[in-house]
């Protein structure tokens, strides 16, 4: 098979499996949802957002040259900004600016 054909096949596999994973709960439980699944649906968001935060920070190297300081300081900045104004856009832009400044200039 030529390499374009192979690339197309790989894209089809990635797209197909990703779709399947995303549709699966809706296929399985769309008619009648078991109570346990509804319960999970209610509490999972809280656990999963925490999991996503850890997932985003998984590459942080505590033993490396920066000791994870840019990450810790910037997460703290986001927390404080958000506690202060409760404006998601401000917290995201402020935190990102803080992190970029730290990794490019202070620890760069």
């Amino acid at each position: 098979m030529d390499s374009y054909g192979h690339s197309l096949m790989l894209i089809a596999i990635m797209a197909g499996i990703t779709m399947l994973l995303r549709f699966l709960p809706f296929f399985l439980f769309s008619r009648k949802t078991p109570e346990l699944v509804l319960y999970l649906g209610r509490v999972l968001p809280y656990s999963v957002i925490a999991l996503l935060v850890v997932y985003c920070l998984r590459g942080t190297d505590l033993a490396g040259s920066t000791h994870g300081l840019p990450e810790m300081i910037s997460v703290l900045a986001v927390l404080l900004l958000h506690k202060w104004r409760h404006n998601t856009l401000l917290s995201v832009l402020g935190g990102t600016f803080c992190y970029m400044l730290l990794v490019q200039s202070v620890f760069g």
Binding site: V43, I49, V53, C56, L79, K83, V92, G95, T96, M100
Partner: peptide, 29 residues
Amino acid sequence: SAGIDFSMTALFVTIFVEQWEKNRQHFPA
């Protein structure tokens, strides 16, 4: 653009805070 991907982390942190404040039950988080 080094470090700009932190915007995703920041977004999830703000959502964590929002959910924390709206919910009295903190066990799942």
